[in-house]
Simulated assay, not measured.
Amino acid sequence: MTYRATAPQDGRQDSTTSALAAERRRLINLAYRMLGSLAEAEDVVQETYARWYAMPARQREAVTSPGGWLTKVAGRICLDVLRSARTRRERYVGEWVPEPLPAHAEWPAGGADGGAADPADRVTLDESVGMAFLVVLESMTPAERVAFVLHDVFRYPFGEVADIVGRTPAACRQLAASARRRIAASRPPLPSPAQRAGVVRDFKRAWQAADISALIGLLDPDATAVGDGGGLVTALPHPIEGAERIARFFADRTLPGRLALHECTVNGQPGLAAHLDGAVVSVYAFDIADGRIRRIWAVLNPEKLRPWRTE
């Protein structure tokens, strides 16, 4: 089988080690899109490398494409994690929202060039990590999600996808097609980045002013707001539906003097981050269509805000 990863051809240990290290960024990108959690993606990649080094040296030397082996193992671990995730989501306190990521320039630790230790510096931000996109992925079956991410996002041939998912290439093609229909059904034409940023900026101003009328005007009549505190901090126990209810909810929660609201990039798109005494305590992602906000995702769970902090 031919994998996309580049592997050493001369079999020397130093080149193999270098090739393995080079795969880490791609594996983090792959696992984050499959799982919607940077912490879980990091665990998957760590387990993948642990399995590699647990093999006898002779068995490792027999692997002609270390990168391909890592991809196959990481994909299968992600599939197992997704299969168990539904039970864990049922036990999760409140609503579960994918883990938000800051833009590279907004990493508190300085980003890749500044020597950040957090694996967030290895996630490439594009449309495939947008919050709305990740939420749709959450609605898919584990096999659908893995097949779609591998083929449509990372361009792996169905023959390779089949080897990871454990189904035939034809079955994987059907899984990806089903996932594609879910994506298409949930995604209206996206406004331009400037339009999205303008709507988020107007929402920030209306929230700060507790202007209910302005907030209602920015929200789709059937908008939904979801909060994720994970049981660790207070958050919405259930989604709030309807423009007026959402507007009143935010207007009633005026920002205290020490809490500063900043425009930022959340998973590659315009969003907001609330800072209390300089520390990020909540992140807001938005789904915008036709100039109005359709969905708001508020992440307050401190465990999901690790990439936003300096610790």
Rank of each mutant, 00 (worst) to 15 (best):
residue 228 D to G: 04
residue 245 R to Q: 08
residue 226 V to D: 04
residue 221 P to M: 04
residue 252 D to F: 05
residue 180 R to Y: 02
residue 219 L to S: 05
residue 226 V to A: 01
residue 215 L to R: 05
residue 197 A to D: 14
residue 241 E to L: 01
residue 219 L to K: 09
residue 237 P to A: 11
residue 190 L to T: 10
residue 223 A to L: 05
residue 192 S to E: 14
residue 184 A to E: 12
residue 215 L to C: 01
residue 221 P to G: 07
residue 222 D to Y: 02
residue 229 G to Y: 08
residue 224 T to P: 03
residue 238 H to C: 00
residue 189 P to I: 13
residue 254 T to A: 13
residue 197 A to P: 06
residue 200 V to H: 12
residue 228 D to N: 13
residue 211 D to W: 05
residue 176 A to K: 11
residue 237 P to I: 06
residue 233 V to M: 06
residue 207 W to C: 00
residue 241 E to S: 05
residue 207 W to V: 04
residue 225 A to Y: 03
residue 254 T to L: 09
residue 242 G to P: 01
residue 181 R to T: 03
residue 207 W to D: 01
residue 198 G to W: 01
residue 179 A to G: 15
residue 212 I to T: 15
residue 244 E to H: 09
residue 243 A to Y: 00
residue 222 D to A: 13
residue 188 P to C: 14
residue 182 R to K: 14
residue 218 L to W: 03
residue 227 G to K: 10
residue 180 R to D: 02
residue 203 F to E: 12
residue 219 L to E: 02
residue 194 A to Y: 08
residue 248 R to T: 04
residue 234 T to D: 15
residue 194 A to K: 09
residue 211 D to I: 11
residue 225 A to K: 03
residue 233 V to S: 10
residue 231 G to A: 05
residue 239 P to Q: 04
residue 223 A to W: 08
residue 226 V to Y: 05
residue 189 P to G: 13
residue 216 I to F: 02
residue 199 V to A: 15
residue 227 G to H: 02
residue 234 T to E: 13
residue 196 R to H: 04
residue 209 A to C: 07
residue 228 D to F: 10
residue 236 L to I: 01
residue 192 S to K: 06
residue 223 A to I: 04
residue 221 P to F: 08
residue 243 A to F: 00
residue 214 A to C: 09
residue 204 K to M: 15
residue 211 D to N: 11
